[in-house]
Design a protein around this nucleic acid. Structure first.
Length: 381
RNA sequence: GGGGACGUGGUGUAGUCUGGUUAACAUGUCAGCUUGUCAAGCUGAAGAUCGCGAGUUCAAAUCUCGUCGUCCCCG
């Protein structure tokens, strides 16, 4: 269950605790993305070193490889990946939208071609719930239809209708197959593209179905950042206060700090890991592209305010060299730092909310952090 | 001493025979992109007076002569 521990007085930030079969998670929290059952280049021990509370994995990818027979035989995803803390699995709705070659999307489900071998696959809401039951994830996400950007109104409306239909079927299947006494949560995913009334409709319909938490999906699909935040204004007021809110796929560090202040509890994004592999480290001053030539002889740490193991030991110069030489250690070191940065940022956010200083925390953060957006898209409040 | 092959961005090559726009490709370098994952991707930029000199020609990386350099073979 989710327990709302504290509501910040000067912002809409919330402090909470989500209790799962694999332990409790303090919110607001960030879930490092481990699509294939691994946060790229990091071991479970690495993640525990800085007290990562929960990771995200992916139904679609794991279903295709290694397959349910393997993970089932392993005793579930936790055992398979040697991770005994909570796991949220995404449904694959986003992958059908972004990755697989779509062949047919109907109310029944989605037929698509595997991006591995081209084989034809068919996903239904029921099958996605069944799959996640076998994976044993602590939080399951239902199959949804992620609308693109831009998206005309009729298409956005269709995706809302279908997402609600699928949510209802997911919920039904969930109750039909759920083991007694085994705690697995099922969330609803709000769609509606950039149409306020469709977002509102989606939120109301899903709340009516009573999920364990609510995600705002169909965001960060190419829309301007201010529009992405407007979606929160439309949706969050309609969600029950005693359920966690999950901003799917978000975001850059300053976006997370802002969204927490709007009342979001959960985040995930591949940004810290992917940006790391492409040579970028996050710091409290903003993003540092360590790969760049200006760091050739920079013998300071990635982030001089960081307490991580990498910053204690390795220099920008060395990491740049590793990166430049295509040494896998370079990716690993930046990834470690970046995930630490995100996890630690959330820890500081929670401490600030706890200490009634979150509004001050936001001001200081935005004051120091060089935003990646144009002036017109400033996140400062 | 004689004979032969080759000199084109940092590196490796294509183009030369059959002269014709701003000399191409790979890699490297430099930078940008990245938001419910695409490590080994995507986009862009810089970088060569085609070893040097002369000649032929409307026009030379390309043909001719000379010269320098590297490598190979023979003595």
């Amino acid at each position: 269950m989710f327990q709302l521990i504290k509501q910040d007085k000067s912002t809409k930030a919330r402090l909470g605790r989500l209790t799962t079969a694999h332990g409790a998670v303090d919110s607001p929290f960030f879930m490092p993305v481990g699509t294939n059952g691994a946060v790229r280049s990091l071991s479970a021990e690495n993640l525990l070193e800085f007290d990562t509370q929960i990771v995200l994995s992916n139904t679609y990818h794991l279903f295709l490889r290694p397959g349910l027979d393997v993970i089932g035989a392993a005793g579930g995803l936790h055992k398979f990946m040697s991770w005994d803390r909570p796991i949220l699995t995404d449904s694959g709705g986003y992958q059908v939208f972004s990755l697989a070659r779509l062949r047919k999307l109907t109310d029944e489900g989605v037929e698509f071609q595997s991006h591995h071998d081209g084989s034809t696959q068919f996903f239904t809401p029921e099958k996605v719930v069944d799959t996640q039951k076998i994976l044993g994830s602590d939080i399951m996400m239902p199959l949804d239809e992620c609308a693109p950007y831009p998206c005309d109104r009729s298409q956005a409306e269709r995706s809302v209708l279908r997402t609600t239909l699928w949510a209802r079927r997911s919920k039904k299947q969930y109750h039909a197959v759920l083991d007694r006494g085994r705690m697995q949560y099922l969330f609803g995913i709000v769609q509606g593209a950039t149409y306020p009334d469709l977002r509102e409709r989606s939120a109301r319909e899903l709340v009516g179905l009573d999920f364990d938490g609510y995600a705002i999906g169909g965001v960060s699909v190419g829309e301007p950042v201010p529009l992405m935040f407007e979606t929160l204004d439309w949706v969050l007021p309609l969600l029950p206060e005693d359920k966690p809110r999950y901003f799917m796929g978000i975001g850059l560090p300053d976006q997370i700090v802002k969204a927490v202040g709007e009342g979001v509890d959960m985040f995930d994004t591949c940004v810290p890991t992917r940006y790391a592999r492409h040579g970028s480290a996050f710091t409290r001053q903003g993003r540092v592209v360590v790969r760049n030539a200006q760091y050739i002889k920079d013998f300071g740490p990635l982030d001089d305010q960081c307490a991580c193991r990498v910053c204690a030991k390795y220099t920008r110069s060395y990491i740049r060299h590793l990166f430049n030489s295509n040494e896998i250690l370079g990716l690993k070191l930046i990834t470690y730092h970046n995930v630490f940065f995100y996890v630690n940022l959330m820890k500081e956010i929670r401490a600030a909310i706890q200490g009634n200083t979150f509004d001050q925390f936001q001001k200081e953060f935005f004051g120091a952090y060089k935003s990646e957006f144009a002036a017109g898209e400033s996140l400062a409040i």
